[in-house]
Amino acid sequence: MNKNKIKLFLVDDDAVFLKLLQIEFMEQANFDIETFATGELCLESLSHHPDVIILDYHLDGVDPDAINGIDTLDEIKAFDPEIPVIMLSSQDKIDVAINCMHHKATDYVVKSETAFLRLKKIISTTLETKKLERQLNWYMDRM
């Protein structure tokens, strides 16, 4: 894998939406993408060290007993609190977004025709912020 590529996990139980999202990101050429239909499959692959995870809020379409997006988010943050997780949902409700943020999601995006553009911008901003934080920490360690 090219070291300059962003390791991106896409987690959604809607196979069609997941494929569309994968195609959109693949066209950007700077992503190494892994897709998962359940939170459990995503959690099993965290050792692949994703740079960013895009996670659906509801994940019970494939398996009604599957863990939901919030529980998956909690498990991801327990594994590594530094992994940025962007929650994605068809729920256009402020209380759902606030709940995601309380569980330490990086951001919340409603599934819509502009979702991909918002996701791309959030990923770019998030990774740039992480890079600046690393540089600042490096600088402060040498003072």
Rank of each mutant, 00 (worst) to 15 (best):
I122A: 01
A29T: 13
I122C: 01
S112K: 05
T72G: 03
F116W: 02
K5R: 11
C100A: 15
L117N: 13
S124M: 13
A97C: 08
P84D: 01
D13A: 10
N68C: 07
S124P: 02
A15W: 05
I123K: 10
F116Y: 07
V85Q: 07
D14C: 04
Q135A: 01
L8H: 04
D63G: 10
D14T: 10
A105T: 04
L41A: 08
F36Y: 15
M140Y: 06
K5F: 00
Q91F: 11
E34P: 06
I33P: 09
D65S: 14
F17Q: 12
A97L: 06
P64A: 01
L46C: 12
E82L: 14
I86Q: 00
D80H: 06
I94V: 08
D71A: 13
R118G: 02
T38C: 12
Q22D: 15
L88K: 00
E40Y: 10
P64N: 01
I53V: 15
I98R: 14
F79G: 01
F36G: 02
A15D: 15
K19M: 15
C42G: 12
A15T: 09
I83A: 13
K7T: 13
E128G: 04
L132Y: 15
K93H: 09
K131S: 05
K131F: 09
T125W: 06
L21Q: 12
E113F: 02
D65V: 09
D13F: 04
E113K: 09
K104V: 03
D12M: 01
N99H: 14
K104E: 06
S89D: 12
H103C: 11
D74R: 14
E34N: 10
V110Y: 00
H102P: 01
K93E: 12
T72A: 09
C42H: 09
C42N: 10
T106H: 07
D12E: 05
A66Y: 02
K5T: 02
A78D: 10
M87S: 03
S90I: 10
L41S: 08
I6K: 09
L59S: 11
A66N: 13
D14N: 14
W138L: 15
H48R: 14
V85W: 08
R142N: 11
I98W: 03
L59Y: 06
I123M: 14
D95A: 10
D71S: 10
D32C: 07
R118L: 02
L73T: 10
N68Y: 05
I23V: 15
I94M: 11
L8W: 05
F31Q: 11
F36K: 15
C100Y: 06
V11E: 00
Q22T: 06
D141R: 12
S124L: 15
I23K: 05
I122Y: 08
F79M: 11
F36A: 01
E27V: 02
